[in-house]
């Protein structure tokens, strides 16, 4: 691990200023992704601003009947909240499908959104990777790509966003609240938060340097039946091959987003009109532009089958 300096900020604006004012500085929340990557020298921050004292660890009701989730609320606390379990079941389900009990106790809402890809070549510092080292090439495209993206990728990078929580937040139309070094707030719809890789795969999200996430807000509850289905290589403690977050209403209409298939949670609102016609009708348009590799072509039919299982589960509930 490279050497760094360390401080604990007291207010959100102070934290944002501390990171914006020093090239190479980063926020530190739970540390479960950043410290892992620092040990491998994939991340080499020169200064860490620990945000644990910012008092952003509460879940509050909003005036619109939704919930405001502080950036530092742990994954365990969020999934355990009675309002989340009752009104936003897809979110609680997605969180408990991810990582392990130990990790969820430390992982924060903001840190989870900003976790980096699990592409094996991103982790292997001997290999070219445009996300880790811009311009070095992409070892995954001609390499081992079983885990990687089938849609929305570029000729520079075919990595996925590996997380589960963000897929549920996408289906719930959450908003990411931030503050910058000047103390100015900004609200970013979750649909615009993560980026596609394009020609700049080293930039995962649309956050500006030094911009601090303060909260994630959920609109008022949608009702319906909430399902999160995650297909993986073992029954627990593994990243998704394909995952589906869905909220299905009693008349068969609904919303759906896919994880494990793209550089961001994959949702196309227009495709959802076909929900009452069944899974294949939805995925035919959702994955119309899919360009899978030889290794991960299985993900496209798997996405249809997983959605079919989700619809069946939703109808049975």
């Amino acid at each position: 691990m490279r050497l760094f300096t360390y401080e604990r900020a007291k207010t959100p604006a102070e934290a944002a200023r501390a990171v914006a004012g020093q090239p190479g500085a980063k926020f530190l929340a739970g540390g479960t992704n950043l410290i892992d990557l620092m040990k491998l020298e994939i991340e080499t921050p020169t200064h860490l601003v620990d945000v644990q004292d910012l008092k952003l660890d509460r879940i509050e009701q909003t005036g619109e009947g939704g919930l405001k989730i502080g950036a530092l609320v742990s994954n365990t606390a969020l999934a355990s909240d009675a309002r989340v379990r009752r009104d936003y079941g897809v979110l609680a389900r997605a969180i408990v499908a991810g990582a392990s009990g130990q990790l969820r106790n430390k992982a924060t809402t903001a840190g989870n959104l900003l976790q980096r890809t699990r592409c094996p070549y991103f982790y292997d510092t001997n290999m070219p990777c445009n996300k880790r080292k811009p311009g070095s090439g992409c070892a995954a495209i001609a390499g081992y790509s079983r885990q990687l993206a089938v849609i929305g990728a570029s000729d520079q990078c075919i990595a996925t966003h590996p997380g589960d929580m963000a897929v549920a937040l996408r289906v719930l139309d959450a908003t990411v609240e931030t503050v910058n070094a000047a103390g100015e707030p900004r609200a970013i719809p979750i649909a615009d938060f993560h980026r596609l890789p394009g020609a700049t795969p080293h930039i995962d999200t649309n956050l500006a340097p030094g911009e601090l996430i303060t909260a994630v807000t959920l609109p008022r509850p949608l009702g319906g039946r909430h399902v999160y289905e995650k297909v993986r290589d073992r029954a627990s403690y593994a990243f998704a091959l394909v995952s589906v977050a869905a909220v299905i209403q009693w008349d068969g209409t609904g919303r759906v987003a896919f994880g494990g298939v793209a550089h961001k949670p994959w949702r196309i609102e227009a495709a959802e009109a076909a929900m009452p016609q069944g899974a294949a009708a939805v995925t035919t348009s959702l994955f119309a532009d899919a360009k899978p590799t030889h290794d991960n072509a299985f993900k496209v039919p798997l996405a249809t089958r997983t959605l079919a299982a989700v619809i069946a589960e939703g109808n049975a509930a």
Binding site: M1, T5, C119, P120, Y123, G143
Partner: peptide
Amino acid sequence: AVTATLAAAGVSEAQPLPKALAPA
């Protein structure tokens, strides 16, 4: 390195420096 789903097991990283060498 190629098969790890939970990438990076087995990669050795820096051990803590002896205290005498600690920069701070």
